[in-house]
Each structure stands twice: as structure tokens, then as C-alpha cells.
Amino acid sequence: MSEETTTPSAADFSKQSRQIWLGGLGLMIGSALSCSIFNLLSSTTSHIVLGLLIAATQVAFQLFVFMHLKNERGIVYKFLVFTVFFTFALFFLTHLAQSSPLHFDAFSSK
């Protein structure tokens, strides 16, 4: 919709407006869900996993619908993909540096 230069018709307009409200409501429900599983679930780990899933959905929705990334051309995707990749590299490599998943037991003298 960002590309349109002609003014949308009034019907379009109220439809879009309604969609925005509904989308926002969906986001709110997502956050409410996050909060309530915090009361329901006892384990931190399962809560983190679920909470992150909900957050990821919300973020994707915001990005693609509210920020209408879905309507943008490829070049933005190109650098966003790299950005996300580097961010995750920062997450995981820093953590991996702290823990060594490999142990060379073969060399240790019992």
C-alpha cells in the first residue's frame, strides 16, 4: 500500500483502518497470552520458549504488516537478512566461546 500514489477510495480506507485495529488487538492478545502463561506454567524454561515464540510472532506481524515490509522491494530484505544473521552470530558465538561442547577425553590421563 505504500506504493500507491492515487488516493484510495473511502471504502478501502475504512477497511484498512479496521484491519489496523484488528491487528493491534491481535498483538495485545499475544502479550496477554505471554503474561498469563507466566501465571500458569511453573517451569522457567518452558515459559521462555513459549514466550519467545509469541514475541517472535508479534515481531513478524509488526514488521510485515504494520511496517508493510511485505510490500517493499528486495534490496531491503538483502541487508536485513545479513543484519539478522550478524545479530545471531553475536548471540551464539559469544555464548559458545564460554562453553566448550567438545571434550578431548582421549588425551587425558584418566
Partner: peptide, 24 residues
């Protein structure tokens, strides 16, 4: 440009990083 983002810890070999990361 791409690779320059994923080589940084070669400045940190002496910090006792895990072997896997060091190899990477």
C-alpha cells in the same frame, strides 16, 4: 565485508575460548 563480521574472536585466542569456537 561479509566475513569481516564473523572473525572477531581471533583477537581473543588467549582468553581460553572453547575449542570449537576457536576453530570456527
Amino acid at each position: 565485508g561479509f566475513f569481516s563480521f564473523i572473525v572477531w574472536a581471533h583477537h581473543m585466542y588467549l582468553t581460553g575460548m572453547g575449542a570449537v569456537v576457536s576453530t570456527f
